[in-house]
């Protein structure tokens, strides 16, 4: 399946946010949900199982100056095998303008046995933009070894590289479960917090979670490994 979804938000001039564009295609459907304050809340609604290898899903998000958008998903997505040799792909491209805010807080991505999945996010932040961006990866369903999955995140702030990371797991990622990468943890993820109004806090690490102030902008990356999705979420909640 191929699908393109698009979300464009603008400040409505009364302290709120208007969704001037909101459309999706199965299995990538978007629904606006009731919200409070000036934030527009949107849920990603999976219209089919998957993604299945061979699926090519794209989501474009633009948050105009002064607007605020929060994106959730109603359920975890489970990357599954499909056509032999095919790869499933979920590409998110987000542009966040000055004084705008984007919170991307979807449910987990589960890499099921035999999957071949690429989750690819590219985010451009203008100077003064704010962001919460959470990626959570569960390596296999219960008791299952995962297929191949790559979670690639590329963030620029004010035209400068802020974060580039590709986490690869599965049979084609040497040492991914070993003590240099995940140490056998089946759940891992990160939460990127970009907030120009906050001074960066110093780095901190404790066992399986770390707070990492980044070099390229007013941003902090929380990174964690965990024995399960629930513990991971506790590490990556703001």
């Amino acid at each position: 399946m191929r699908a393109l979804a698009r979300l464009v938000a603008r400040a409505d001039g009364r302290g709120g946010t208007a969704l001037v564009e909101l459309h999706g295609e199965t299995p990538l459907l978007l629904r606006q949900t009731p919200t409070d304050g000036g934030v527009a809340t949107v849920h990603l609604v999976g219209g089919a199982a998957g993604p299945l290898a061979g699926d090519d899903l794209r989501l474009e998000i633009e948050v105009g100056p002064g607007a605020a958008v929060r994106v959730h998903s109603v359920a975890a997505s489970i990357a599954l095998p499909g056509r032999a040799g095919a790869v499933s792909r979920m590409a998110v491209r987000a542009v966040v303008h000055a004084d705008a805010t984007l919170h991307w807080l979807p449910e987990q991505l589960v890499a099921a046995a035999g999957c071949a999945h690429l989750a690819e996010s590219r985010i451009e932040l203008a100077a003064g933009a704010s962001l919460l961006w959470r990626d959570e990866l569960i390596c296999g369903r219960y008791g299952e070894a995962p297929g191949g999955a790559v979670v690639h995140t590329q963030v620029d702030y004010a035209g400068r590289p802020l974060l580039r990371q590709s986490l690869a797991v599965g049979p084609h990622a040497p040492g991914w479960a070993g003590p240099a990468v995940l140490g056998g943890a089946p759940a891992t993820g990160s939460l990127l917090v970009v907030d120009p109004s906050q001074a960066a806090e110093p780095p901190m690490a404790d066992g399986s979670v770390a707070r990492l102030p980044l070099a390229g902008g007013p941003a902090t990356l929380w990174t964690a490994t965990a024995p399960d999705a629930h513990t991971l979420r506790a590490h990556l909640s703001v």
Binding site: H152, Q154, P161, R164, Q165, S166, L167, A168, P179, A180, V181, L182, G183, T188, S190, P203, M204, A205, D206, G207, S208, V209, A210, L212, T223, A224, T225
Partner: peptide, 22 residues
Amino acid sequence: PPERLPAAAAPLADIHAEIHAT
């Protein structure tokens, strides 16, 4: 181009490094 160069991440490398630094 530079933005496309490999970016392979290792969560424990980051976590271990910050613990070590303390």
